[in-house]
């Protein structure tokens, strides 16, 4: 029993450490665009506030965040938000809209400590991408 608990604890620790590394690497990535794995987005919108969510990318990047918001904006449009596990000063917002032309996802990842940001958008063929950019290309003050 003790061994089992230790194994679980170790696995959780390892998982957490691995996710942190992935998140930190995300901010340092030199990739311009990273595709999110198809089908991995739908389910995370079932996450509840406080829940740890993993967003898996095609290149192996995993973005782990703790949900701080899951709101229906209107019928067929809802937005999930959270704080990245690997970088507590970085926040993700992801909106899912079930439009006539299909489900699209939009959002952003914004760091409060640096000018690095990611725009989340849905390409015409339906693939959802993280596009590396700068914060001032997403959010404008004044």
């Amino acid at each position: 029993m003790t061994k089992t608990l230790l194994s679980i604890a170790f696995a959780l620790f390892f998982f957490s450490a691995s996710a942190q590394i992935q998140d930190q690497d995300l901010l340092k990535t030199d990739k311009h665009e990273i595709a999110i794995k198809p089908g991995k987005l739908v389910n995370i919108f079932n996450a509840k506030k406080g829940e740890l969510v993993k967003l898996e990318c095609v290149d192996g990047t995993t973005i782990s965040f703790t949900v701080n918001m899951n709101v229906w904006n209107q019928e067929l449009v809802r937005t999930l938000g959270g704080k990245l596990e690997g970088n507590k000063e970085t926040f993700i917002t992801l909106t899912q809209a079930d439009l006539k032309q299909g489900i699209i996802y939009e959002g952003n990842i914004i760091s409060h400590k640096s000018n690095i940001a990611f725009k989340i958008f849905t390409a015409k063929e339906g693939t959802v991408y993280l596009q590396k950019t700068t914060k001032d290309n997403i959010l404008v003050t004044d």
């Binding site: 506030k49 949900v67 701080n68 918001m69 899951n70 709101v71 229906w72 904006n73 809802r78 937005t79 999930l80 938000g81 959270g82 926040f91 993700i92 917002t93 909106t95 959002g107 952003n108 914004i110 409060h112 959010l139």
Partner: peptide, 14 residues
């Protein structure tokens, strides 16, 4: 205001 990046990024999702 609810369900926006304003909320998740600046107000803890609230």
């Amino acid at each position: 205001v609810t369900g926006t990046s304003w909320n998740s990024s600046y107000n803890g999702g609230n």
